[in-house]
Amino acid sequence: MKFRYTFQKIVDLKSNEKTQAEWILSSAVSQLRVEESSLTELRIERQGIEGMLMDASIASTTVSDLLLFQNYLTHMDQRIDAKLLDVKQAEEQVSTSRTHLSEKAVEEKVWFRARDKARDLFLAEAQKKEQETLDEMALTRYKRPS
């Protein structure tokens, strides 16, 4: 007699939900890395513009060129601020995904434990029946006249 768990499809579903949550977390972490990398590039670009502004201010440059550099720096600051918001949103998504994954892992564990408990009960019952059969056979042999 083979053990068949009545709720095996639910166990499989919970396992699949956990796997899906892992994929979502992985995607969220990848997106966070992309946003952080983009932010780093913007900051490096801004530093380059600052260097160009400093060089231009040392050399004889027109005021309009200096204003152009300053306007571009302001624009870069705005892009950095927007990218900081994107990074924050990506961090929140990672946090939400981690929470979701931990919830799915707990659900999966509960169902695995229920299945294991049902299997243990099944095996104990099967062993009990087998022992009763062996006892009955031994009793029948003992009662037979020799």
Rank of each mutant, 00 (worst) to 15 (best):
residue 96 T to S: 10
residue 65 D to W: 01
residue 86 D to Y: 02
residue 57 S to C: 10
residue 30 S to K: 10
residue 55 D to Q: 11
residue 136 E to H: 09
residue 90 A to G: 05
residue 11 V to D: 06
residue 106 V to Y: 11
residue 110 V to W: 04
residue 59 A to S: 14
residue 123 L to E: 14
residue 84 L to Q: 12
residue 142 Y to F: 13
residue 57 S to Q: 12
residue 19 T to N: 14
residue 146 S to T: 04
residue 90 A to S: 12
residue 7 F to T: 05
residue 34 V to K: 08
residue 37 S to Q: 06
residue 33 R to G: 11
residue 97 S to F: 02
residue 143 K to P: 01
residue 27 S to V: 11
residue 54 M to E: 08
residue 18 K to M: 09
residue 28 A to K: 14
residue 138 A to Q: 15
residue 1 M to Y: 07
residue 81 D to L: 15
residue 99 T to R: 04
residue 24 I to D: 10
residue 5 Y to A: 00
residue 140 T to K: 01
residue 108 E to V: 04
residue 25 L to W: 06
residue 77 D to F: 04
residue 62 T to I: 02
residue 126 A to F: 02
residue 56 A to G: 01
residue 40 T to L: 09
residue 102 S to V: 03
residue 71 N to D: 15
residue 80 I to D: 09
residue 97 S to L: 00
residue 131 Q to L: 10
residue 68 L to G: 05
residue 25 L to I: 00
residue 109 K to P: 00
residue 41 E to Q: 06
residue 87 V to T: 13
residue 44 I to M: 02
residue 39 L to V: 05
residue 10 I to W: 02
residue 134 L to F: 11
residue 56 A to P: 06
residue 62 T to H: 07
residue 4 R to W: 02
residue 47 Q to K: 11
residue 59 A to V: 03
residue 96 T to W: 03
residue 65 D to R: 06
residue 50 E to W: 08
residue 124 A to G: 05
residue 127 Q to C: 00
residue 45 E to K: 14
residue 66 L to Y: 03
